[in-house]
Amino acid sequence: MPREAEPSLNEREFVLKALQENTRLDGRELDQYRPLELTFGDQYGVADVTLGKTRVLAKASAEVTVPYTDRPLDGIFNIATELSPMTSPAFEVNRPTETEVLISRLLEKTVRRSGALDTESLCLVAGQKCWSIRVDVHVLSHDGNLIDAACFAVVAALRHFRKPDTSMEGGVLTVYTPAEREPVPLSWLHSPFCITWSFFGEEGEIALLDATWLEEQVRVGSCTISLNKHGEICQIAKLGGTPVEAVALLQCTNVALSRAKDFSAFLDRKLAEDAKRRDKGGLLAELSAENDR
């Protein structure tokens, strides 16, 4: 298995020395994110997130299936993460690396276990039919901070997604095509966002947000905090690494909360813009035979 080239000793030293002097190689503040961009696809439920040179694409899709026997009243919701060799030669198809497992676990805990999507609303006929919502996360380019970008993409894709409308009449379930009935949004409860801190220095005393790939390679530890704008923590993961002062972690959480609020506002704005772009002025305008000449 080819291995990712590690930064040279000089490079490592340079990054760390610069950080000791509160300087990052790209000139950002320690708690500053790279420019975040979000574009929605033509289809519903496709979100393309760019964070500096990191790029993640998430696509949500829905199909009607049979619910799990132990949960007859719940729909199915899955997040599939794929790190392809396109991103880095260290990733192989069908053999999940540790990074991939950890990312998918984090996304699962942040979005699924925190109850962001109301799975009960996905039930169509108890024990027989339900919606299965699946989000595929594709990492197109890896320049650090995959988790934050992937989580943002997943939340954006799900909030943008519309599933076909259905109706139940006399025991007959009808799934309408988009032409027959306007697709409906998912029943979404809250939007969690991941914020990852990276720690540097002997005792992890330097903390910074949105590390690039080079910074990630030389860091001594990291802590991913997932929050929504209501100030609820959905998940915290500091999985080992150099120990960090407990008080510093609390401060990190408070900063993360304000970042989560920023993300939330940004996503709301983007969704509103997209809705405006798609809105053709109702059914009458859409059915009108008049053409612009």
Binding site: I233, L239, G241, T242, E245, L249
Partner: peptide
């Protein structure tokens, strides 16, 4: 007081974190 591992898997208010920690 240096924390090596901190794992929280449930939804909780931020204000509650300090006491729990």
């Amino acid at each position: 007081d240096r924390v090596a591992v901190l794992v929280c898997e449930s939804r909780v208010q931020v204000s509650r974190l300090e006491g729990m920690l």
